[in-house]
C-alpha cells in the first residue's frame, strides 16, 4: 500500500498508508479491528470517502451561494 499523505522528508510529517489511516480512524471511533477486519473494511471505506467527496462537490454551488 503506497503512502497517501505527507512528504517523505520533513520534520513533522511521516508517510501514512491508507491502512494506517483507517486503523487510526477506527481506533478513534472506539473500534478494535483485526487485520482481517482492516482488509475487509478498506475497500468499503475508500468507496465511502469517494461518495462523500462527490456529495460534497454536488452541494458546493449551494454553499457558495449561501456564503455570497
Amino acid at each position: 500500500m503506497g503512502a497517501v499523505t505527507g512528504p517523505r522528508r520533513g520534520l513533522h510529517t511521516v508517510p501514512v498508508t491508507e491502512r494506517e489511516l483507517l486503523t487510526a480512524a477506527a481506533r478513534a471511533a472506539g473500534l478494535r479491528l483485526s487485520a482481517a477486519d482492516v482488509v475487509a473494511l478498506l475497500p468499503a471505506w475508500k468507496r465511502y470517502l469517494t461518495l462523500v467527496e462527490e456529495l460534497r462537490a454536488a452541494m458546493a454551488p449551494e454553499d457558495t451561494d449561501a456564503v455570497g
Binding site: A26, G30, L33, D37, L41, A44, W45, Y48, R56
Partner: peptide
C-alpha cells in the same frame, strides 16, 4: 454486516449532515 457496521462507526457528523 460487521463490515457495514464498522464503516458506519466512521461516518462523521458533518457527512451525515451533508447527506
Amino acid at each position: 454486516v460487521r463490515t457495514r457496521l464498522q464503516l458506519g462507526s466512521l461516518v462523521a457528523g458533518a457527512d451525515y449532515v451533508l447527506a
